[in-house]
Each structure stands twice: as structure tokens, then as C-alpha cells.
Nucleic acid binder design. Structure first.
Lengths: 220, 220, 220, 220
DNA sequence: CATGAATGAGGGTTCATTCAT
DNA sequence: GATGAATGAACCCTCATTCAT
């Protein structure tokens, strides 16, 4: 679930010789290299050798820090995507007073982060190998999907309480909010459909429309 | 783009012996076998040998009908998913008079077809290898995404004309309609999140909410 | 336990084209190559690539006939050594009437066969990896050791009945008969101690002495 | 042939601090660790890292004392098995007056020492790699086999002189005495054939029978 | 039309060994 | 005296693809 600890470092001396910094930076360097290779070739076609080379390490060197290719992907989930979901949770927690506004922030956070091909690459990878590595699928569901559901769910529930939202199942809310964002990202990154020039406006409009959809029923 | 023609049909002998049927059914059998293997293992991990075995053919036999593994995937797009998009186009063409109802039908068609793991598997595959095979991504965009956009776009435009929909960019409409459906399918098929018991109702509710979002602005 | 069957051969046609013979001969060719490589380098240090090359096959080709390196060794036991033990059993069965003579034949059979470095190589291999592959150790015990014990045991028992041998536990008899032979072979093949010029006479003397040892106690 | 001297013992400082003991104990600790790993995994499959860990040392640390994996094995022969052969030589030297009794002691010494899996492991290792490292085979032959031959040979010769033994080539005697012992050990340690309950008696009987075999010919 | 046989090109992973610190 | 870090060289095994039959 986490990389091998960068081989034991005695706390002892305070001096930090060059190679020490190296060792400490290595996991991150390797993850970044792995992400880039995964992004362009996919999980299976990415070669450990290329990942190593990109991290300026020998092939064997990678295994000093990560046990396997799969472990790299696992760690990418934890380090690259889970934080986004956690940020969403925090936004939700902090925004119970104004759920509409908080929801917008969550929406924008997700849009913005997933716009980065590096970030989008991770769910894309998970998607493509989840059948073969159920454990990874579970990790992603736990660390990302469920957190997003919690965040959105709590906001919609809060809004329903105060009358700014109608009462809808959390899954419906999540699909409505997250679905269109995900769709755009897939279309753009995976199917090479260039975003329209006015994407920003479109995304705003889109959210506004969703707010209308979620608004409480008007009394007839 | 299409399978090799079922090997040389000797002109001359006109009699159509029993095995002919067989030969003509082969491409379809192979595609089905390929789809099943791709579905469970993904594109890279699927083995041509297993595909062949599933189609009750020798490994080499597959190559009589398809040039490569990639060709199998290409043909799956054309044969398994493009028809759905074309059906959507037809629904749209036939439903210009009642765009709301037609849109619902398109929405339901998409939901229903993507519920089938066999169908969902194809976009999922494309997603996972589109970077390595841009040509396949383009094929999918052309054959599927653009058709869906056309279908939805024409309906929303028609509705805007007659005042049942507000005026929105086609991409926004597409994201709103297709995004939530896609999201559900990913969550279900890829992350093994079982659908809620009341999924049907949720999907209906979801569409109704989207109709509210797309409804023309009420005059204040 | 046995090699993959040389890929299915339809009984149909009687003509036997060149490559068919090939396929049928392959397992044996590969085993012989494997034995030679194992013999010179040992099990671990032997490389599948070298085995393949020696059998004039590509590396991958070997795997058409044998599932793994381990399988090669397993099959070597069955094909190279077990037959010796089975021959000993047959000699024993046929020689119940004259156990002394039969025992001598068994002794000479074992000496003669183990003199061949190719044959000796197999038990040697088993010995060196038996801890890591208990299944192979079991196979050897079952197919070779136990058979030899049975053969020797039945002869000694028969001899005891008719009074030409004294009564001794079968394991003692086996150790006395087989131990010296094995010792010689190990010393010669493994520790590079060249056999003395008069080995033949020594082996004969050795057996004669053992017969004295096994002779019934002389009444004082 | 021998371990690197325990790293530079700075002449000068004569005080012998506690860690000195440590350093001096190291080679032995490492050898013991190596033996244990070799014993369970065999020479090739044993990992220097595991040996080091077992000796509570870093991987690199082992190389301060031994030049290579091979060197470990070499030193094990010298330290673990050669002493047994030397003890046998001493027994032989001391027992010229009563060769029968001395031979029994040699026999029992060998049986007893080889019963220890740790001791048995060494010849077993040599056996498995002697082809690749002829030098090691030679070492073993020189240090162990030849010494045993000398010991047994001198006793049998002495016995022949005094008429308690018949005249037999030394190699025959060695095979007769050592072969059955070796056989038992192989069967037990390598093939996990548990020793019979009455092994002790069997081994005694075995030796007694061998004494009969070696007894001078009775005048007819 | 079909296949049995074969292979070239890796792919992930391991490990003995080295060296700067 | 000791080690953390690093690596080069393999090694077993796999698989898409080809081709003679």
C-alpha cells in the first residue's frame, strides 16, 4: 500500500550528504517517472526499464523502493488522486453552511485537477486494469470514490435540510455532479476531442444548470 | 478497419456446402470470443490463444480473419458500439417532433446498452489503449462520440426551437445527458460497486432532473 | 509428471512428413539436451536458452513440450533412472530361484548404469535440489529408491528362506549393496577421483565380500 | 582458500576493546549463517542477503570477510568437514594396535558426524556444484576424501599385517565402510526418508557384517 | 480452410557484487 | 569496521505473429 521505506536511515548525524537527499527524493522521482510512462503507454505496455531510465536509475534500482509494477500504481493512487478526494472532503466539511457554494468549489476542484492529464491518467489506469487487480480497484473505490461520495452527499444533505436543495439520493447527486466532469475528461484526454474554446463558460453553465436541477421543487 | 474477407471464396464451385455457413459465421464468433477475453483481462493481458480457443479455432486460424489483435478491437468498435450510436441518431431523426421524449429514449437506450458489460467493455478498452493506438481513439470518436453528439445536439436544438428546451451548447447537453450514465457504468462495471436496488427509479429521477435543468428559463 | 503431449497429432493420414518426425522426436532431444546442460552446470545454473540451443530449438520452443525447467528434471527421472530401477525389479522377480546370482545382476546393473555420467547426473541433480522441490524428491524416492529397495529386499528375503543368506533388515542389505556403488560413483563423478585401473576387479571383489557378509552364520 | 583477514587490525592501539571480540567472531558467525542458508536452499538459491541478515550484518559486510559466495563454501569445507577427516586420521594413527576397534571408531565417528544435517550439508553442496567449481571439488577430495582413505587404508593394512583383516585394496575397504554410511545419510537428509527406529542396531549390525566381510579367509 | 510448430523480442524480477560515505 | 545505495547481467517464461503443410 505504501512504498518500501527508503532504506533505513539512522537518525543519528544531522549532516545530509548529497546521496542522502537523493535517497529521500527517489520514491517521488520514481513515481513521477512511472506516471509518465503509464500515461503514454498504459499499465501493461509501460516498461520498468523505461520508468527506471526516466528516474535516472537502473532497472533494479526501482525495486529498492517499490516491490512491483503494481505497487507503483497503488502508490500513485494514494499520492496523486486520493489527496484530491480528501481536499473535497475538507471543502465539504468546511462548507456546510453554504452547501451550494461549497458544492461549486468541489465541482471546480474536480474539474481543475482532472484537467491535468497527469492526474487524469491515474483513474484511467485503474479503469483499465481493475478487473485483473481487484485490490487496486478496491483501493481506488475506498480512497477516492467513496470520499467524493461522502463529500457531495454531505453537502446535498445539508442543502436539503436548509431548503436550498431538493432531496435526492446521494448517488444521483454524485452522478449529476461528477458524471459530466468525468465525461469531459474522458472525451478530451482519452478520445482526443479538443476542449471547446469556451470550455470554462460551458463548465460554469453546466454547474448552474445542475443547481437548477437540484433546486427544491417550486410550489406549483 | 474491417476483417480480412473470409478467405478466398473460390468462384467456380457454386454449391454452398455446409461448412460455408461456418466460415461465414467465423468472424462474428471470433469477435465475440475476443470481446469476452478483452472484457475480463483487458487488451494487453488477453491472449490470442485464449481468444482462438474460445472461438474453437487454432491460434493461427484467427489470423485468417483478422490481421492483428488491434484489428479485433477496431472491429469491435464498429460492430458492437457504433450501432448503438447509429440507433441514437435514428431515434433523434425520428423524434424531432417531440424532442423531450426522443431525448429520453436516447438516454434510455444508452443506459440500457451500457448496462451490458459486453458493450461497456468496448469503450473501456478504447480508453485504456487510446494513447498507444490513436487511430482507434479517432475511430471511436468518429463512430460513436460524434454520432451521439449529433443525435443529442439535434434534439436539443429542435427543443430550443419549439421552446421546450433552453438554448445550451451541444457539448453541455451531451455531458449532462451522457456523463451521469457513463459515471454509473464505470462505477458499476469497473469498480464493482453494485447498483442500488432502486437504480431504475434513480435513473428516471436523474433524467427528470436533467429535463428541469434543460427547461427554458422561467420568466421571473 | 510427464511432458506435454507432443501437440495433438491427428491419426488420420498415414504419410509422415519430415516435420512430424521432428515433433515426435523433440521431447527426447530436449531431454537429452537438458541432461547435458544440467550435468555440466547443475540445475540452477543451467540456462533454458542453452538447453534450447543444444536441442536446436528456440528458447520458447522448449516450452511447447515442457512446462518448466522443473518439469524437465522430473521427466529425466522418469525416463532416465526409473527404468533402471524397474529393470532391477524385473531381475529380482525373475531371479527368486537363485537370489545370489540375481543380486549380483542387480549390483552389476546398478554399477554399470551409474558409471554413465549421464545417468549418474540425475540422482545428483535430485540430491542438490530436493530441499527446494520436495515433490521431486518424492518422485525419486517413489520411482527409484523404493523400487531398488523392493528388488534387493525380495532377493535377500528369498535367500534367507532358502538359507543362502542370513536374515537382515532390508535397509541394511540395501545400504550394503547400494552404498558402496553409490560411493564410488560420487567419488568418481563428483569429486573427480579417477577410478583405479582394476576397478572392475575391485567391484567384483567388493560384491564377493558382501556375499560373505550376507552369508548365513556358520555354525561355530 | 581462507577468509580475508578480519579487516585491518590497526597495529598500534594495543588495547583490545570489546568490539574486537565481535570482529573476531564474525567470520565464524557468517560461516554458520551461510551454512544454514546453503543447507535449506542449496548453493545457488541461497541469497547473500539472507546470509548477511542471519549473521546480523549488512550484505556488504559479508564481503569484508569473504570474497565471494564461493569462498564461503570453500571455507565451510575446511572448517566443518576437514576436521572430521582429520579426526579420523588421528583415530587411525592411534589405533594401529587394534585396527578392528579403531575402524569401528572411525565408522562411528563418520556416522555420527554425518547424522548432523549441518555437517552433511557440506558434502551435499560440494556434490551439487563440483562441476562448476572443480577447484572446490579438488579441495574436498584433498581435505576430506583422501584423508579418510588414508585413515581407513592404514587401519586395514595394519589389520592385514596382523591377520585380523584380509588383504583388500584400500578403495574397496573405503567403499565398504563409508558407502553404506553415506547412503543412509543421503536417503535420510535428502530424501526425507526417516531413519528406522532401530537404526542404531542396524548400523551396528552393518558394521559387524562388514567385519565379517573383511575378516581373513577361513582356511577351507 | 485450418493448424501444428516454431520463434523473436522482450518483460518483470532477482541477486552477487561494488563503492562512496 | 560497516552500510545504504546502486547496478549489470542474467534468467525464466510469455506471446503475438508467421509459415510450411
Amino acid at each position: 500500500m505504501s512504498p518500501r521505506p527508503p532504506p533505513v536511515r539512522r537518525a543519528g548525524r544531522d549532516a545530509a550528504p548529497a546521496w542522502r537527499r537523493r535517497a529521500e527524493a527517489r520514491p517521488e522521482e520514481i513515481l513521477e517517472a512511472a506516471l509518465q510512462e503509464f500515461e503514454t503507454r498504459g499499465f501493461d505496455a509501460a516498461r520498468m526499464e523505461d520508468i527506471a531510465a526516466r528516474a535516472r536509475l537502473s532497472k533494479a534500482g526501482v525495486y529498492l523502493y517499490f516491490n512491483s509494477k503494481e505497487a507503483l500504481l497503488r502508490e500513485l493512487i494514494v499520492s496523486r488522486v486520493a489527496p484530491v478526494a480528501m481536499a473535497a472532503e475538507r471543502l465539504a466539511a468546511a462548507g456546510q453552511a453554504d452547501p451550494g457554494q461549497a458544492l461549486r468549489m468541489v465541482y471546480e476542484l474536480a474539474s481543475e485537477r482532472l484537467s491535468d492529464p497527469h492526474v487524469f491518467a491515474v483513474p484511467r489506469l485503474v479503469l483499465s486494469i481493475s478487473n485483473r487487480f481487484p485490490e487496486i480497484a478496491d483501493l481506488y473505490r475506498t480512497e477516492v470514490i467513496n470520499r467524493m461520495r461522502t463529500a457531495i452527499g454531505s453537502l446535498v444533505a445539508a442543502g436539503a435540510q436548509t431548503g436550498v436543495f431538493r432531496v435526492v439520493p446521494v448517488d444521483v447527486a454524485m452522478r449529476l455532479i461528477a458524471g459530466p466532469v468525468l465525461f469531459e475528461m474522458i472525451k478530451r484526454h482519452a478520445f482526443r476531442d479538443p476542449p471547446p474554446d469556451d470550455l470554462k463558460e460551458q463548465m460554469t453553465l453546466q454547474f448552474d444548470l445542475l443547481m437548477i436541477a437540484l433546486a427544491p421543487e417550486r410550489p406549483t
